[in-house]
Design a protein around this nucleic acid. Structure first.
Lengths: 331, 331
DNA sequence: CTGAAAGCGCTTACAG
DNA sequence: CTGAAAGCGCTTACAG
């Protein structure tokens, strides 16, 4: 590989000057600068990333920790964050937590030795209490910590979140306005910060409409397709009767629709189904899925801005992205 | 951050010895080794990754370049490769080519300065001719280059591929055996190595059955949902008649099914649809999708093995993974 | 405006 | 078996 010293020799200057030119140091004379650029181009020189990182004490990568790489929501987020990070001039390191607190903790321990530019935590699982000190230390050491999906601004961590509670409040009200009365909720609750919020919106909508909350209509499990299908199939088998279902994810909704159709029920005439997240797929299945929007692109744009920003003031620590109801044929 | 010198002081040895112990150098006496381990643990010391990488001339990250992060096929692959890379003790850097030869070329130029452990190229777009020299140089310099999905073994690059041609040969024969006679093909052909192979299998099946190949039944476009839906909707509108469709991806198949259903046609009784890839979704929509299997887990396992392997012999340069037909309700 | 020197935190021949 | 020294390839005070 070509090194700074090679470029220096070629341009008839010292390595220090090569470095100055490449780092946009204004003090170098125009004439020398041009000679250096010429040499850089003709040798196709690229500074060694590790040497630069070591010297500067800060590398060029950003780590993204996703809660569950198998969920469409995180896949969409990964895609937009990858591109945001790249646009900001950094490289993206990808890790999958798979909802494991232990993996999160292991990574946080390792992070300080990696000279990360930033650490983006996209998980709705509660951040273990004993991690918050380490995370704040990271943050203080020049590695900006960013939470996506969960509000950790109280820990001094920049957070980009979506509205959760207002979303299901809106959508369940819509179901009620359509005349639905026995409305179920299906999604992960235990240990999920966002799941709990979505569920609260559901309960609030029932309560505001004067409908009774029935715990038998609540299905708590993972966000996957199979979970949705199995839970609803089981519920139907055991005689549970609903006329609408609010899902905690689009995957659950799709799985539930399959179970309903397999049981000979019609969606939405017998049972309306409401998704959550508006994944790509939602508009391509039949019946097309009514759902609540997500905006991974906007979330990623916020992350990109945080990557570039200097010191953050308190009010910059939290951004909330709204969701809207996207009406399609399933409700 | 704790440094080797801190650990050394604590253990009453030199930094060199700390390094020896941490790198499993057998020559260190048992007693000293234990003292060092103790100090390492009590200080929670982790060697700085950049310093280590700089000194060794080789870092701990593996870059994965995916052809198109929006396709389910690449998402599945990313997930398994992430975990394979991590199991092998490395970190995964993720890049999205978005089918851009320019982005690939830009990355290959930058790669040598990154001290990568390996470079995994998962794209079926033809590798530009002028890159092959650079890629081989990378390979020679200690950064193992691995191609997933496309056979580049003739360039000395370890390749893990799936059977493509035999797959559509099998599935189209199945459609013919079901009595289908006007069978369309929908998928990307131009510039796609795998697309071309799949298409060849389709043509071979027609020819072996004595059916006429009709170019009007071939739809060449991207692998996305929308592409499938639009192409089929347009074809139906312009009077094209088919009784079966071989798709080049599951997304295309799902999009096509939506277009068919929107046009009042029934799947599979009016038109059978065959997917390609067996993405998660395939089993959760109705009608469930008949398709050809993919094995991202097996591909990732091969990659993991290549990551650990020493010098490769010629016969280790290519692994081919078979596909099988997965019968469901859509055909 | 530019060069020589020091140093980022490791690892590894070289001595002993 | 272990330490002192050199060096990986940069960047940046320090001199001039």
């Amino acid at each position: 590989m070509t090194k700074a010293v090679d470029v220096a020799r070629r341009a008839g200057v010292s390595p220090a000057t090569v470095s100055r030119v490449l780092n946009g140091n204004e003090t170098v004379s125009l004439e020398v600068r041009e000679r250096v650029f010429l040499a850089v181009r003709s040798l196709d020189y690229r500074p060694n990333a590790m040497a630069r990182g070591l010297r500067r004490g800060l590398g060029v990568s950003v780590a993204l920790l996703v809660g569950d790489i198998e969920q469409a929501h995180f896949v969409g987020l990964t895609r937009y964050i990858q591109s945001a990070v790249e646009e900001a001039g950094f490289d993206l390191l990808l890790y999958n937590l798979g909802h494991s607190a232990q993996r999160l903790s292991g990574f946080v321990d390792r992070a300080p030795s990696m000279s990360l530019r930033a650490l983006v935590i996209a998980s709705s699982d509660g951040l273990a209490r004993d991690l918050s000190a380490k995370v704040q230390a990271l943050n203080a050491s020049g590695c900006r910590v960013i939470s996506v999906g969960q509000d950790l601004s109280r820990l001094g961590i920049a957070s980009v979140v979506h509205e959760e509670r207002a979303a299901t409040l809106l959508s369940v009200k819509h179901l009620i306005a359509q005349g639905r009365r026995r409305i179920g909720y299906a999604g992960r609750l235990a240990g999920s910060a966002v799941g709990t919020e979505r569920f609260r919106g559901y309960k609030a909508a029932l309560s505001q409409a004067g409908l009774l909350y029935d715990p038998d209509l609540v299905f708590d499990f993972s966000y996957r397709f199979t979970a949705g299908r199995n839970a609803i199939a089981r519920a139907l088998g055991s005689g549970v009767r609903i006329d609408a279902l609010q899902a905690g994810s689009d995957e659950i909704a799709v799985g539930a629709i399959a179970a309903l159709q397999d049981a000979g029920l019609s969606v939405p005439s017998d049972i309306a189904v409401m998704g959550f997240g508006n994944i790509d797929l939602a508009t391509h299945i039949r019946p097309a899925l009514t759902t609540l929007s997500s905006h991974p692109d906007i979330a990623a744009a916020h992350v990109q801005q945080l990557l570039g920003a200097g010191n953050l003031r308190k009010k910059d620590l939290l951004s909330v992205i709204s969701r809207s109801l996207i009406l399609r044929q399933s409700s």
